[in-house]
Amino acid sequence: MIRFYLIDDHPAIRKGIQSMIQNIPEFSLVGEASSAEEAIADFSFKKIDILISDLVLPGQNGLVAFEKLKVIQPHAKVVFLTMMKDWDFVKKAYLSGAYGYIPKDSDTEYIETSIREIISGKKIFPEEILSILPIGSEWEEIRSKLQDLSKREREILELIAKGNLNREIAEKLGISIRTVEGHRSNLIEKLSLNSAQSLVRLAAKLFG
């Protein structure tokens, strides 16, 4: 039995996905929520195999729920069912370890087929994203390492990608320059890089 959890603030969308899940014998809906905050409160009490979530939610976004679920139930796969076409945001979802992005206006057959492929381990993203994403075994290894970074390390990596210097990063995050330097050193080590320049190049490729 594949256990699903659904997050969407539109009751009609939740009802449609719920109906699809309930019509498939090997699928089971174990919970649903209208916000990330509501869902996160459930994550410690319900076993989840697949989280289906919108990216845009009232309050915290779907990526926040995703990050929390990864900590509590690391085996769970996450697919975003959304109308958002902010490719930088969708790219961030991919690099965080999401398994799929499915447009909300997709027909039920496509959604079911995509979910079955995701269950089998395949990642489902539109061509517009795949054309700009780092793909291949080398990048998959880096993407895996990215998931081991702390929230602060990811923030600093994204700021590096935007061309910020240590002083600017320190001012924006309210931390000391020495702390930023320490995080940079940790990033170089965790991402198996050999220099500060290689860190800047990688950050630009990932988040530039």
Rank of each mutant, 00 (worst) to 15 (best):
residue 206 L to V: 00
residue 110 Y to R: 03
residue 121 G to R: 08
residue 139 W to T: 04
residue 116 R to Y: 10
residue 141 E to L: 11
residue 205 K to S: 15
residue 13 I to T: 08
residue 96 S to E: 08
residue 148 D to V: 05
residue 62 G to T: 08
residue 86 D to F: 05
residue 34 S to E: 15
residue 201 R to V: 07
residue 103 P to I: 04
residue 166 N to M: 09
residue 25 P to R: 09
residue 7 I to W: 00
residue 16 G to S: 15
residue 193 L to E: 05
residue 22 Q to R: 13
residue 180 V to D: 01
residue 45 F to V: 13
residue 191 L to Y: 02
residue 131 S to H: 10
residue 3 R to E: 15
residue 173 L to T: 04
residue 172 K to S: 15
residue 100 G to D: 02
residue 47 K to T: 07
residue 173 L to P: 01
residue 96 S to I: 15
residue 125 F to G: 01
residue 193 L to P: 02
residue 204 A to E: 12
residue 21 I to H: 00
residue 71 V to H: 11
residue 61 N to A: 11
residue 155 E to I: 00
residue 117 E to H: 14
residue 37 E to D: 10
residue 73 Q to E: 04
residue 58 P to N: 07
residue 147 Q to K: 10
residue 176 S to E: 09
residue 12 A to Q: 13
residue 51 L to H: 10
residue 41 A to N: 13
residue 4 F to S: 04
residue 149 L to G: 00
residue 84 M to Y: 07
residue 36 A to H: 02
residue 4 F to Y: 10
residue 64 V to K: 14
residue 178 R to H: 15
residue 11 P to F: 03
residue 96 S to H: 12
residue 186 N to A: 11
residue 205 K to M: 12
residue 175 I to K: 08
residue 197 Q to W: 09
residue 100 G to A: 01
residue 38 E to K: 13
residue 80 F to Y: 11
residue 199 L to F: 06
residue 41 A to W: 10
residue 165 L to D: 15
residue 25 P to Y: 01
residue 51 L to N: 08
residue 10 H to F: 09
residue 179 T to C: 05
residue 1 M to S: 14
residue 17 I to V: 12
residue 87 W to N: 02
residue 119 I to Q: 10
residue 49 D to I: 06
residue 75 H to S: 08
residue 127 E to N: 10
residue 73 Q to C: 06
residue 52 I to E: 08
residue 57 L to V: 08
residue 8 D to K: 14
residue 7 I to H: 05
residue 95 L to R: 03
residue 14 R to F: 09
residue 61 N to G: 09
residue 28 S to N: 10
residue 168 E to G: 06
residue 192 S to M: 11
residue 174 G to Y: 11
residue 121 G to S: 01
residue 54 D to L: 02
residue 6 L to C: 02
residue 152 R to P: 00
residue 101 Y to D: 00
residue 161 A to Q: 03
residue 98 A to F: 01
residue 198 S to W: 01
residue 137 S to T: 12
residue 206 L to Q: 04
residue 89 F to S: 12
residue 165 L to Q: 13
residue 95 L to H: 06
residue 30 V to Y: 04
residue 202 L to K: 03
residue 119 I to C: 06
residue 107 D to K: 08
residue 29 L to S: 12
residue 135 I to G: 02
residue 52 I to R: 10
residue 104 K to N: 04
residue 103 P to Q: 05
residue 97 G to Q: 05
residue 20 M to T: 09
residue 75 H to R: 11
residue 81 L to M: 07
residue 86 D to I: 06
residue 20 M to N: 08
residue 66 F to Q: 04
residue 82 T to Y: 08
residue 75 H to G: 03
residue 66 F to T: 07
residue 90 V to G: 03
residue 69 L to P: 02
residue 16 G to V: 12
residue 38 E to S: 11
residue 92 K to A: 05
